[in-house]
Design a binder for these strands. Structure first.
Ligand SMILES: [Zn+2]
Length: 314
DNA sequence: GATGCCGGGGT
DNA sequence: ACCCCGGCATC
């Protein structure tokens, strides 16, 4: 699954990498003629570099070096932001008398690129994730996102050589957009919470996790929590877990106001609005009805499985 | 009570 | 994924 696209150079210890030390290999000019900068060299994640930013020179840490268009994404701790620079505009040493006080706080180990290993990669990852955590996908393209993509792919394994060349983020087998991911995880959290709360609040020893949830017959428990116009959260009388369902507020409101208000005994919980999504039963006869239980084998699979009929759609 | 099917369990 | 079923909502 690992994208084989374009990574030709990385295999046995990057052919592009000059044999000399990563640091010394460039600096030539007395101080910063861009062309003498990092021209044609390779930067590795975690490497300390300097760029001009807002008329000032800033120290930063390489996050990623895109060899294709020779762009380097750099994290500037000083400004707490990520920038992209052409390789020519990046220095490995201060180009002016300005010595970054910040840079001293980031101790990048001096090692040859060949030895770029987990430590450095992880360090860079940590930097990125620290600085731009939740909004990561909106940050500069190709920086943190890719770092994360690396992590998603198995704990930052970067099996084939490191050097975040994971270019279009297609490294992950399940191509799900980041936002969806977030949603999903949120849901997962919700579910987890839900479960635990279920157990906690209902004092269920355990057995089967989670039964029921949406119904409002007296006595049975549940719960549908949702928002009403007044922004309250309804719970069953036993105060069961927060269960958020996707019902639009408007819809909910309509339901609440249309519902025959049978005062619920001993309860402030709202009338029946079995929030959401149990599909309305269509009038079409389904396999069960059509063929009868005795011919169950003629039912569509869904019907046999007690799922929504696939043969007689509504 | 019958029917439809969601949610969940087992394999 | 496939299969089954408890149990709820609705007819
Ligand atoms: Zn069917």
């Amino acid at each position: 699954m690992v994208p084989k696209t374009r990574l030709g150079k990385r295999s046995p210890l990057g052919t592009l990498v000059c044999g000399s030390s990563a640091e010394g290999l460039t600096e030539t000019g007395p101080h910063g003629c861009p062309d003498s900068g990092l021209h044609r060299s390779k930067l590795y994640p975690g490497q300390k570099v300097y760029v001009h930013c807002g008329g000032q020179e800033c120290g930063g840490v390489v996050e990623q070096h895109n060899h294709v268009d020779n762009e380097v994404s750099i994290f500037l701790p000083q400004l707490n932001q990520h920038v992209h620079r052409k390789l020519e505009d990046v220095w490995t040493r201060p180009t002016s008398s300005f010595t970054s006080s910040v840079s001293s706080s980031i101790d990048v180990p001096r090692r040859s690129p060949e030895t770029v290993d987990m430590d450095e990669i992880m360090a860079a990852m940590v930097l990125t994730s620290l600085s731009c955590s939740p909004v990561i996908q909106h940050s500069a393209p190709g920086s943190a996102t890719q770092a994360l993509c690396g992590m998603e792919n198995g704990g930052g394994e970067l099996s084939d050589g490191g050097y975040w060349s994971c270019d279009h983020g297609n490294g992950s087998p399940a191509p799900s957009p980041p936002i969806a991911e977030m949603d999903k995880s949120a849901l997962l959290v919700d579910e987890g919470l839900d479960m635990e709360l279920d157990q906690m609040l209902f004092n269920k020893p355990t057995a089967r996790k989670r039964k029921v949830v949406t119904q409002s017959k007296p006595v049975s428990v549940p719960v549908s929590c949702h928002w009403t116009p007044s922004l309250t959260v309804h719970q069953s009388k036993q105060g069961s877990p927060f269960r958020l369902r996707s019902v639009s507020v408007g819809e909910q409101w309509l339901q609440n106001n249309n519902a025959t208000f049978r005062p619920h005994p001993a309860s402030v919980s709202p009338p029946r609005n079995h929030c959401t999504s149990r599909r309305i039963r269509g009038e079409a006869k389904k396999c069960r009805k059509v063929y009868g239980i005795e011919h169950r084998d003629q039912w569509c699979t869904a019907c046999r499985w007690k799922k929504a009929c696939q043969r007689f759609l509504d």
